[in-house]
Nucleic acid binder design. Structure first.
Lengths: 338, 338
DNA sequence: GTGAAAGCGCTAACAT
DNA sequence: ATGTTAGCGCTTTCAC
């Protein structure tokens, strides 16, 4: 036998299906007697309202779609925490789709979300071409998380990478470092901004002449290569600001291999404050992004559009913060005669 | 204006909506002329079939629901890779729900999945009480991943923790270790099996008298505490099998702090092969679970039920494998006179 | 090869 | 406070 419908419940309880509908939705003006009877029958039958049918008639699904490029990246887990919390508070439910960084499956996942008639879309650094994203944004309010957007139909929320880089440099400078180098993130998302933030901050601290950027990537390997470049020629830096935590860990490994003490001889700062950074064994000083807040903001942006409060795009930049752990400290004292 | 419907397309193309339906679903017996016309109009209008309406009439959603207790646990990312791949191959789409390990929100997420009329449910280590899971399994085929089940309505797929523990012990024993200790995972999922697997394997290698289990947990702290217990009294082990990678990393930290060299003085083996284990800086020898295969298997189990091939429960145990990295090696040589 | 009509399970007027 | 009715967008007979 297939699942019971609202009609089955109505018949069994000897009432109209409208009444059942009212009871199921918790309407106030129903007699206690009937309410109780309906509820009893419903539970006895194992009745569960069919959201598909409801959505069809209401022309609303109450669903927000979250698209995630990559479940492997723990960064987004906390963004989603924020999304879920905010959505729940505002009466929306969320479903997640993902595409493992393969364009075809990402496109399929996006289609699924759209065909299910989600009322808004949150895209977390999709690999999809901007064209497809723009198309989607014509159907429902769309916000991009952790990926910039210039489009006027697509909102975005990201952390302020320039400010974050500035925080890292400021921390190291205030510890007394002058030769602070940057291992960059190549063409990764936000890498350019972090590089610029670094350069500007060095300038601001009067350290422009000490600034040194070497090519890296958002990977352990990237950090590793950066150290090779940095310490093989020229005057070695006393501090390294790596483009992200993974690169910072690569930096740490390379430094350890060369027998360079951290933080006694060289300080290291990362970016993102991933779970990796918090591991005791690593204990990395890093820049934290307000992930849950970014998620909450993404939901708010969608609801602003859904409520018709806004038609033009908003691009929100959220302030990062510094998390000081064990890989940063004052530079080694100059050998000065006592 | 709201989104175009099938009727809008039909009118504009001067055909019946039945025909549009046929074209959209790629039916063969439609004249090329009309097909082309319909397609052109549909794309001009930005028409997207409404899956909600389709599901209602077809009485099928073609959707599998994946419930994840915890997005933060990277373990499940790869399980989901397998789920998505298998589901796509078999013509199903997947949506993910999550509840951040809070019973109330987990329940909500599960309800969402069920109300959306997903045709099968894959639950990845939910915190929900078994009662609720059993209820769900009465509505749709349900499979539990990485959490055992005795229920006859709920299938399950997990890795063979006993075999995995055996692999770890076997590896250490073959390197020549005899005093192999185990820091256990308390009452975490699978911890009991890993402990038993350890004990049996020690026995099998004739090392029963050397076996030593200390209380730990699936956390860094757990590994840390384990080392304290292990090295504060009694004869110190030459190898430690920790209940999981996190505990193994705690073990590594504690060992480093006591100035004990790894693997020169003590070998360490973890479990799960998380991304953490692969980090150069850590480079942990560990036991790997076949995550993507577990995901694929979960989907297969559901489809077996959906296709009516099976009514009784199946509980699949998948074989783990050993990943040797840098934290295990031969024990220090006994000081023997030359 | 194409169209007309019925109906999926529900909600929302509107009556009573 | 409760019942009646129409219809959401689509697929599926069944005619032609």
């Amino acid at each position: 036998m297939s699942r019971p419908t609202i009609v089955d419940v109505a018949k069994r309880a000897g009432v109209s299906k409208s009444l059942v509908s009212l009871v199921m939705r918790g309407a106030p003006n129903v007699s206690d007697e009937k309410r109780e009877r309906v509820l009893r029958v419903a539970s006895a039958l194992g009745y569960r309202p069919n959201a598909v049918a409801r959505s069809l008639v209401r022309q609303r699904t109450n669903l927000l779609g979250v698209f995630l490029s990559d479940l492997h990246n723990p960064f987004f887990a906390e963004v989603i925490d924020g999304i879920q919390a905010e959505a729940a508070e505002r009466g929306y439910r969320t479903i997640i789709g993902t595409g493992d960084r393969v364009e075809l499956s990402e496109a399929r996942a996006l289609d699924t979300l759209l065909e299910l008639r989600t009322e808004g879309l949150i895209l977390a650094s999709p690999i999809l071409p901007m064209r497809r994203i723009a198309e989607a944004s014509r159907e429902v309010p769309t916000v991009l998380v952790a990926r910039g957007s210039r489009s006027s139909t697509i909102d975005s929320v990201a952390n302020d990478d320039t400010a974050g880089a500035s925080l890292a440099v400021g921390h190291l400078a205030s510890l007394g470092h002058r030769r602070i180098a940057h291992i960059d993130g190549g063409d990764g998302a936000g890498a350019r901004e972090r590089r610029r933030g670094y350069e500007r901050a060095m300038d601001r601290h009067g350290l422009a002449r000490e600034a040194r950027v070497v090519a890296g990537a958002y990977t352990e390997e990237g950090g590793w290569q950066g150290v090779r470049a940095l310490f093989s020629r020229g005057r070695a830096p006393t501090a390294v600001f790596a483009a992200n935590d993974l690169a910072a860990i690569g930096t740490l490994s390379a430094l350890a291999e060369q027998g360079i003490g951290v933080p006694e001889e060289v300080s290291v700062v990362g970016y993102d404050n991933t779970a990796l950074a918090a591991v005791h064994h690593i204990h990395l000083t890093t820049v934290d992004q307000p992930r849950p807040e970014m998620g909450r903001t993404a939901v708010s942006l969608i609801l602003e559009r859904l409520d018709g409060e806004r038609r033009s795009a908003r691009h929100v930049l959220m302030p990062p913060s510094l998390v000081v752990r064990g890989t940063s400290g004052a530079p080694a004292r100059k050998k000065v005669p006592r």
